[in-house]
Amino acid sequence: MIIAVYAPHDPRDKRMLWDYLAHVINQWQGEVVIMGDFNEVRVKSDRFGTNFNVLGANIFNSFINSTGLEEVHLGGSAFTWCHKSATKMSKLDRFFVSNNLLNIFPHISGITLDRFLSDHRPILLRESAHDYGPVPFRFFHHWIHLEGFNDFVTSTWNSAPSVDSNGMRNLAGKLKFLKAHIKIWIKDNKSETVSTIANLKKELNQLDAVIDKGTGTEVEAEKRMEVLAALRNIDHIHSMDLAQKAKIKWSIEGDENSNFFHGILNKKRNQMNIRGITIDGVWKEQPNDVKQEFLSHFQDRFAKPSERRANIDMRFPKTISEDQSQDLEREVSKQEIKTAVWGCGTDKSPGPDGFSFGFYYPHLCPVY
């Protein structure tokens, strides 16, 4: 069901409209797209040069939440309406879709177009995906539970070349070496897992056929339990993978077969997806343009400063004592390193090569 909206200005009339639309949408047994000029904003930053009506925004947001709608991210300009004097601007035009529609069209997005003589910008709904190249390396906690992974990491780490005298550069080099080999191992493991699942299901069907005939023995029954346990273990590891990607509490929010879960996962992907960037007032979507702009931005941020620098008076009226100075410069103990690492959550990362502390706990920390 597609609903086109041109909302009234009067707050009482708008509230009546939200109630009517909520009734229609909640009665509809299917997907919904609602779009148009809602004459209302959701947050204070959606307005410029005009007063923000907190009550009106709360009622509007309540309507959106009660109908299970998700707002489609708009690329391009931040505001869709502009007064002719250009002193007042607001984001009044939007797209909303039902949660399940994100499962069907995960790459759905919107974009604002040029206004020309109108005071409103047209908005375009579309599904588009851009390829920004290989994704960065990420360590997933469920890898630790894969059979053979711990032994593989240990052997690979011990065989990694150690050619740099600098300890930190040597660590980074070994992590880079390990990362490349983990990628290959995980890819091979996925292929083996697909084959293993097929074989286990085939064996389960054969065992069920024997048991259903009434000719099964305790041996077949025990074997069936072993096959089921193996399948459940594989399914549990897969669930851990999806749970980390979705960043939700698995035992509370449900399993990967629920519409809720897929809605959360696809909503996160939709929100984090980079659809384009404004460069000198012009919206650019081509991956090469976007990546080049990001590269230029951070090159400027981290470039070597100019020769003209501020002079700092190094004559400080208060200084630390000799004992404090020695305490700051002393060697860090293994116990201090362990305490610092153990105090971090599993989803935190110390920086190099995408490894999280979920990886460091069982693998690298014992090395110290």
Rank of each mutant, 00 (worst) to 15 (best):
H73K: 12
H73Y: 00
L74I: 05
G75C: 08
G76N: 02
S77I: 00
F79Y: 15
T80E: 06
W81H: 01
H83P: 00
A86W: 09
T87Y: 07
K88I: 15
M89I: 01
L92K: 08
L92S: 11
D93R: 07
R94H: 13
F95V: 08
F95T: 04
F96S: 05
V97K: 04
L101D: 08
L102P: 05
N103C: 13
F105Q: 07
F105T: 11
P106W: 01
I108C: 01
I108E: 03
I108N: 02
G110H: 04
G110D: 01
I111H: 01
T112E: 10
T112H: 05
L113E: 14
D114P: 01
D114G: 10
R115N: 03
R115V: 03
L117H: 07
S118F: 09
D119L: 08
D119R: 04
H120N: 06
H120G: 04
R121T: 04
P122R: 08
I123V: 11
I123W: 08
I123P: 03
I123N: 07
L124N: 06
L125D: 09
L125A: 09
R126A: 00
E127N: 13
E127A: 12
E127R: 15
S128L: 04
S128K: 04
S128D: 03
A129I: 10
A129M: 04
H130C: 00
H130N: 08
Y132V: 02
P134E: 11
P136E: 06
P136K: 05
F137S: 05
F139I: 09
F139M: 10
F140R: 00
F140S: 01
H142L: 07
W143C: 06
W143K: 02
H145W: 01
L146W: 10
G148N: 07
D151V: 12
D151S: 13
V153F: 07
V153Y: 03
V153N: 02
T154H: 10
T154K: 11
S155N: 13
T156K: 11
W157Y: 11
W157C: 12
N158D: 15
N158W: 02
S159F: 04
S159G: 09
P161A: 05
D164N: 10
D164K: 07
D164L: 05
S165I: 12
S165L: 14
M168Y: 15
M168H: 04
M168K: 15
G173C: 07
G173S: 09
G173L: 00
K174L: 00
K176G: 07
F177K: 02
L178R: 09
L178V: 13
L178S: 10
K179A: 11
K179M: 14
A180L: 11
H181E: 15
H181I: 08
I182V: 15
K183R: 15
K183C: 14
I184W: 08
W185E: 14
W185D: 12
I186D: 05
D188N: 14
D188L: 14
N189V: 05
N189T: 14
N189R: 13
K190C: 13
T193R: 11
T193Q: 13
T193M: 15
V194I: 15
S195M: 12
S195P: 03
S195I: 13
A198I: 09
N199A: 15
L200R: 05
L200I: 06
K202S: 13
K202P: 00
E203R: 15
E203C: 06
E203S: 11
E203G: 01
N205K: 09
L207W: 02
L207Q: 01
L207T: 10
L207S: 03
